[in-house]
Design a protein around this nucleic acid. Structure first.
Length: 415
DNA sequence: TCTGGGGTCCTAGGACCC
DNA sequence: TCTGGGGTCCTAGGACCC
């Protein structure tokens, strides 16, 4: 059998590059990528964090996840632009379409990253580099932005490879290259090693990926339970996961929002819970699934967050069912403290065509279901604002809430 | 002074059943 | 009245990804 060839394609400073390209295409003369600039949320709406930054901004110490306030105090001339998720989806789709010309096995890992499986085409290591260079060039010429492409025999190593020098580069990380290219790196640069794990590893004297690779696997299992196994395998370049072109089954659907003001009363909280339930319900119905677990997540003004969930007897995708349960959970867990964020999510999804009802419930169920369906239809056709519940009038709360564009693709922490 | 939003998986503890 | 384990389900919280 041929060696597997896997590409990981990573858009450089995705949100910022895409905004820059969009502006150039619409007559702007300044290329945002050439100056200190960033995509950031609105400070006034309390969403002021940096989502992406240009390379000149990076050189001035601007990091993603940093507060806009901090970024501006570090670099007052920073040009800030708001996020435009619909644009990101367009750019992401354009990239996927281009990549599919080379292999049908393209997996969208997040809005700005994908994996491509090129095994079975008889391509060797050198040829794969040539091919990656050609793809990278085409993306630049036809779509206007740059990508990094990492090449290896599995997804993990390909992903690690694309993280090497940026932008606009092709890197390989084949297993025989690990000692030279991967093992000297600090352990925090490895996939699945976040801040917590990194600090814990440091405590055990493990500083580089190479040291992690050489650590006794059984010892890691004692320190990190089942996760120790994953850490050891990743450090040794072991990963057998497949490139999945079809989106894997969705496990849960949820939406949350940071409020522009602290929520201090139940009536206002209910409006947010309803607007979030509207969005979650719509998305469940769009996917033709029902949920059996409803979860409410709260964050207070001190940034502490907590959640309560409940498994309901019968799966639902009705906005009203989700809302009622969300209110119950909210009252169960809220002690009156000021809130800055609320979230509603659903889990334990099942086939939406299945219903289990007593005959007396049937009429009521049909009516609610028909109402949701009609509202969904009108909103799909005429826009989300075509139908609004009366309670939102003059309330100051958006009647549908949830951070990003409906079709915005999300990712998981798994390969 | 300020700190987003959407996911997945894992663990621990308690309830409950046999 | 007091004593086991094992298995499964449910819930809360925390880790990670972008």
């Amino acid at each position: 059998m041929d060696k597997r060839i896997i590409f990981h394609i990573d858009c450089n400073s995705a949100f910022l590059s895409w905004e820059a390209v969009h502006r150039l295409q619409h007559g702007h003369s300044l290329d945002l990528r050439t100056v200190p600039s960033a995509v950031g949320g609105s400070v006034k709406q309390r969403r002021g964090i940096i989502l992406a930054r240009s390379i000149p901004a990076k050189k001035l110490g601007i990091r993603t996840g940093q507060t806009v306030f901090e970024a501006l105090s570090k670099c007052p001339e920073l040009i800030l632009v708001p996020p435009d998720y619909a644009l990101y989806v367009q750019c992401s789709n354009a990239l996927i379409t281009l990549l599919k010309e080379y292999s049908p096995l393209v997996e969208r890992y997040s809005v700005d990253e994908c994996f491509m499986d090129l095994s079975g085409y008889g391509i060797d290591g050198d040829e794969s580099v040539d091919l990656a260079m050609r793809i990278k060039q085409r993306v630049k010429e036809e779509l206007g932005f740059t990508v990094n492409i990492g090449i290896s025999i599995n997804k993990l190593l390909a992903k690690m490879a694309s993280e090497f020098e940026k932008p606009d580069k092709v890197h390989t990380l084949f297993p025989e290259e690990m000692p030279e290219k991967m093992w000297p790196l600090p352990v925090c640069e490895m996939f699945m090693v976040g801040v917590r794990t990194c600090l814990k590893l440091y405590k055990y004297g493990i500083i580089t990926i190479g040291q992690l690779a050489k650590t006794d696997k059984e010892l890691l299992k004692v320190y990190f339970k089942s996760y120790g196994n994953v850490l050891w395998e990743y450090a040794n370049g072991i990963d057998y996961s497949e490139v999945r072109p079809d989106r894997r089954d969705i496990k849960g659907i949820g939406n949350s929002t940071t409020t522009s003001f602290d929520v201090t009363d139940y009536e206002t909280a209910k409006l947010f819970l309803l607007s979030l339930s509207e969005m979650v319900g719509m998305r469940l119905r769009m996917e033709n699934v029902k949920a059996q677990v409803i979860c409410v997540h709260l964050r207070n003004s001190l940034f502490h967050s907590w959640s309560h969930q409940h498994k309901i007897p019968i799966p639902t995708n009705a906005t009203n069912d989700i809302y009622q349960e969300a209110c119950r959970l909210f009252l169960e867990m809220w002690n009156g403290q000021p809130l800055r964020a609320l979230g509603v999510r659903t889990d334990c999804l099942s086939d939406g065509n299945f219903t289990q009802l007593s005959i007396t419930d049937q009429n009521k169920f049909d009516k609610i279901s028909e109402l949701d369906k009609s509202v969904d239809y009108i909103r799909t056709r005429y826009g989300n604002d075509a139908v609004k519940r009366g309670v939102f009038l003059h309330s100051g709360v958006a009647h549908i809430n949830g951070g990003v564009h409906d079709d915005y693709p999300m990712m998981s922490s798994l390969l």
